[in-house]
Design a protein around this nucleic acid. Sequence first.
DNA 1: CTTAGCACTTGAGTATAATATGTGCTAGAG
DNA 2: CTCTAGCACATATTATACTCAAGTGCTAAG
Lengths: 334, 334
Amino acid sequence: MNHRQESLLKAIVESYIKTVKPVGSKSLCKKLNCSSATIRNEMARLEEAGYLEKNHISSGRIPSSKGYRYYVENLMKPKEMNGEDVLKLQQIFQNQELQLSDTVNKCVEIISEMTNYTSIVLGKKSLDNNLQQVSIIPLNNNRIVALVCTDHGIVQNKQFTIPKTISIDELSKTCDIINKMLSGTPIINVASRLEFEIKPVIATKIKQYEAVYEIFSKTFHDFAKNVHDNMHMSGTNHLLNAPDYGNLEDVKTILSKFDDENFIKKIESNENEEGVKVYIGDETEFDPNVTIIKTSFHRNGEDGTIAIIGPRRMEYAKTVGLLTYIHDQLNKED
Amino acid sequence: MNHRQESLLKAIVESYIKTVKPVGSKSLCKKLNCSSATIRNEMARLEEAGYLEKNHISSGRIPSSKGYRYYVENLMKPKEMNGEDVLKLQQIFQNQELQLSDTVNKCVEIISEMTNYTSIVLGKKSLDNNLQQVSIIPLNNNRIVALVCTDHGIVQNKQFTIPKTISIDELSKTCDIINKMLSGTPIINVASRLEFEIKPVIATKIKQYEAVYEIFSKTFHDFAKNVHDNMHMSGTNHLLNAPDYGNLEDVKTILSKFDDENFIKKIESNENEEGVKVYIGDETEFDPNVTIIKTSFHRNGEDGTIAIIGPRRMEYAKTVGLLTYIHDQLNKED
DNA sequence: CTTAGCACTTGAGTATAATATGTGCTAGAG
DNA sequence: CTCTAGCACATATTATACTCAAGTGCTAAG
């Protein structure tokens, strides 16, 4: 692609992002210093190469997914955030009172407010959590709460009604054994070590050891199951206001996918990708009519993904700039 | 209102609920055994009394909010649920593995699927929770987790970085004191008793008692603040498919209110109302174009509200029947 | 390689008419 | 006094035809 073609593509993408109207040749004469006929010729070539599309034979051009991609990779310069927005975000990041999940939740709310796109955070316990401590709190009526706490301070609890044949004492004793033997164990390994190392030990000391084992086993199982302990969405209905979807059905299709079961899987960053990634149209594997820009974070024993979903005609420069900033803040050493 | 007028109103409401089309006089002749002219006369009277409305001078009639209300209170008979739906719900209610919050969350998902309305659950810790136990788990790098557990087994934790001047020992000692003195205290009273009874006691035993007090005070404060620990919505976009809103703007207005800050306040059951309550149009104080049907539950130390939001043209009989069933199941003795 | 000119295509907007639905009112029958 | 048949009138909906503006593709000349 020669220089003039690049300028042309850039001009078309940026004009379309701004106005949502197919871009005609005449409107670009001044910017490119040539006549509309010349521009039409170049446009035809760009269209043939797959960077541009037409709605109908005599309409202006709009960028294709390929066009957007070329723009994002070669022509766009991520925009610096303005001072006001930086300030708003700083207030959140610097609030030491907040837990990580609250921080990111507020974060996505602000993102969707700033950008007018839908924004989502998926949080999960990181795999680098190690077991710190388990304990038991007895309640009334033969009920207990079993607690697991990791070295990053993530706590999960589960309630049980225990048979009368099990004493609190036996449970506490088992806790002590687990804490002594498994403290520091990566949380993903705890379940199997519980079965193969702890179970034999308590078998010699506790009568109802099977039932006791079950309680702790279930607790850890629950912990592992609830890896996605946090999913927060903000600005869902912004898509409704996007002028891109003349056809209401398209928006409904997208919105209904938000409720879908494997929605999370499609948003979650699958590889260990660093930085900010842009997925356009079909690349999203979510819906051909949207763009998803996402980034991941790792902090305080939690991993997560922050994603922004908008029309393919996304304000790429601004959005990538914003998400880059947030990524850098979140992954800073604590 | 005489008997024929009641039959007429009932017929109009039920026809409109079914077809979403203004109801004309001719279509009701057979059902009421009289001519269209007679029906028109009655219609005119019902309209004057405020039970019916017209879109324009020569269109059929649609029920007004007052009409719906009369229908709900006097003419409607809540529908029994069909066996299939009962079965689906039973599977959830009888799953002992689930925590209350998971039960209700699944519940609203099924509700919105069955009814095609938006459904919401708001959960909060009940005021009848009493303090069971506080404890401390030390982590690395001078960090700790402080835990609060109530007699219903509700647990909340908060992480702190403690100054080096405070020892774990002092924190544990304070835990013991709190547990001895305040165990069984209603959770709403804990904060003040902590200040006026515990603080003086530890002041005599612990050097940095102010800082230690702060830690527990903040923990309880957080607990009290996070009363709304669970809000779950399902089927938000069902409203988009409702044929009621010819005007897309109306739906957008409603949907945007879901994101509003005091949305929760408007949904929450404010009085201690028992049973299933219906709020139509303006009565909702949320949006004049919707109906909200809600009920509350109290169980295992948690209170909550389940609400169904749909168009004013709601399938009242079916929805009230469904919610009545759920209310009865949830408030059953455990 | 660039540009001016022109025929052609399409979408959006507007005016008009035809049709269907349903009301209100009047006058007559029971 | 109540019910009904009949008719004039009102409105939404749909289809049709027409015009206008925007923009392209192509050709021929600079």
